[in-house]
Design a protein around this nucleic acid. Sequence first.
DNA 1: TAAATCACG
DNA 2: ACGTACGTGATTTAT
Length: 870
Amino acid sequence: MADKIVLIDGHSILNRAFYGVPDLTNSEGLHTNAVYGFLNIMFKILEEETPKYLVVTFDVHAPTFRHKLYAEYKGTRKPMAEELRQQVPMLKEMLKAMRIATIECAGLEADDLLGTLSCRCEAMGLEVSLISGDRDTLQLATEHVKIRIPKTKQGKTEVEDYYAEDVKEHYGVTPTEFIDVKALMGDTADNIPGVPGVGVKTATKIIQQYQNIETAYEHVEELKPPRAGKNLKEFWEQAKLSKVLATIEKDAQISFELEDALYEDPYTKEAYELCQRLQFKNLLSRFQVTTEKKDIEGLFCKLETASEIETLFEKAAKEEIVGVCLSRDEEGILPLFADPTGYGKAAVAIQEKVYLFGASPELPMTEILKKIGWLSGQVKTFAMFELKEALSVLEILDRETCFDNKIAAYLLNPLKSDYDEKDVAREYLDLLLDEGMDQERAAFYEAYIARESVGVLREKLKEEQMEDLFEKIEMPLVFTLYEMEKNGVKIASDELHAYGQMLGEKENELEESIYEMAGEVFNINSPKQLGVILFEKMELPNKKKTKTGYSTAAGVLEKLAPDYPIVSKILEYRQVAKLKSTYADGLANFIQSDGRIHGKFHQTVTATGRISSSDPNLQNIPVRMELGRMIRKVFIPEEGYVFVDADYSQIELRVLAHCSKDPALIEAYKEAKDIHRITASQVFHVPFDDVTDLQRRNAKAVNFGIVYGISSFGLSQDLSITRKEAEQYIQNYFESYPGIKRFLDETVSQAKEKGYVTTLFHRRRPVPELSSSNFMQRSFGERVAMNAPIQGTAADIMKIAMIDVAEELRKRNLKSRLILQVHDELLIEAKEEEADQVKEILTDKMEHAVDLLVPMVIDVHDGKNWFEAK
DNA sequence: TAAATCACG
DNA sequence: ACGTACGTGATTTAT
């Protein structure tokens, strides 16, 4: 059988990939989606074809010979998107690293290059597969030249194949005739004028009958429809030109040596490193790096007897760094270790080996865990992933030695969704782990990686000045959050149940009256059905649309509510339904046997450094609306305890005042004035005492807008005013606070330079969107750059306060405990007789967590439930 | 699994 | 002219 060659149209496939693969960026902020997509398509093809030769062609973008023939060439091609442009050299570098031949030839169109190559290769007796996204290349199909057009359908690439006969079958004409069809119908994208009034149907019919335009011209009087004939006659010169333009050159002057195109093993070290840098997770798994892995697994060692394990701990205690892993299942560690004879396994990595062991009659799990905890007091660094999850079974002797690899990796790039041992190994140790390892092997590796990655993670944290953030804030916080999760919050479950009942009745009433007003029964929860009822059946005026239909979001409905009673009913229904399903019923499912809810707090989730909460989310319990707020009455303290709640007053604006050093804002805070009123007075040019409620409300919205990275549209939307008015507000604001304007501008421009922003405590957030050529994306990047340092610094401050508060409670041996954090608010379940002390601690620690140019102020309340205490 | 909606800061 | 506020998580419907 003949040797095979694969020819790939580089730009065309890269372009396909760019628009077919969602935007990807690596941690340097480089856009990588097109290269990634290209490689996927290429490897898919290569696996199918297993060719002997492979060439990727590139054209240089300039008007070319063929196109220059057309005098009115206007270059309707859009300039390449910046994100795509960046990826062209990246792809070439990758191909070079993979030892894949590339050909480019200045002044030659991709098509002509491919045409010439395929023709020559066929003449050499090769089987040719030509990969392109461009259907023009179909004219190149022959018995031995197969045109392959990849299509991305829902993430999967499917390839359409065309030999000459397939072209005939699909288009009704031979590849050669295909040129003439195009000459008649034209192609705006390629600046081929064609013959006016002749579309694909007519053109195909004519060529089917006469094979080419010349013969057709000879029979121009007989052509059907007559109009086509008339036009062909009239535009004959244009048709001939079009044919020249449409014909792909097969005999261009290029130098090409078949031997240079040999396709060898592309999985080179250079390619591996490049994939590493671009963070192509899936592709990396194609590389064979088994040698290293074998070496690692040689370190793995199972211990059976109690004395072996004892010896290990003696040895480990003398180590500088140990890596630890407690094996877990989906539920976490607890089920494996709660039972002293538990079937869980522990792995400990030291310099020379990694050991794995379980409990035995002589050495129960409780003893093993005690030893591991003890180890934390012996070594310099006690490293593991997800320390918080292990604390339920581990008693740590020295908190200061603890190193959570997951948290370190999060700080280094908070935009990722995963920071597990495989990610850290891949990114920081150049080590690829197999998916789906058995529990024991996974535990070995995790302990090994925990230990091995400490050095590089520490180094990188130091490079970015985040060692203090890590050691003084994030690591201590692990223990505070663990305590909060363990404490949980008590729920008055009977009252919660009654609340749910009440909501259920309300929901039913509203449901019925909505059906009656609508004149039919439908699913109110379905935005689709609701949209049809409101905007089609009842013909309400509709403005906003979503991708799939009408928007029925609250903002839209609220504008209609005054005029249409059914709309207010729907809004009320939504509110009640939400309260019932998410809060009343939702929370009830999380009440544990101790009568409390133990939600989780996450430390490696948000892009800004905030904590997040789930299972259930305790940071979005209703408070703004009266009916929803009632649910806070079921959050109660233990008998003999009382709630003390403290929240920062405008922490983000104060942070902004500090960071921007704006004199007017600083002065306002120093004088403890009503900041929204002051803003109103400045923005609307009225004396402080004459500010109306509306003006104050608007000013408050402006202040929020500033923190979010202001835009006139956003503000106008929020205040239901015109964009002009919003612009005026913003302009007035910046005139009153020029320091803030300067700070925000400076922050954005620095972010564009560096690709990231930082908080006061050096927490970092990359902003890859800033280099986007897409206006919307770039604007988003700008708002992120303005917001992240403010929101992030506020988060840092709160974390410090939490650590200090928890520490002080512990120092004073109080029974009172932290139970919730809601970004700028802390809730403590305080022993009744300790309440005053707790208030004093909260005030002191929260107000003095940092020393800024403006005072930090908190409001403190107490109560017998969360409703009262807020 | 994605999209729409809405609860919070 | 583009089409938006920043950051989360849960529920529901529809694909």
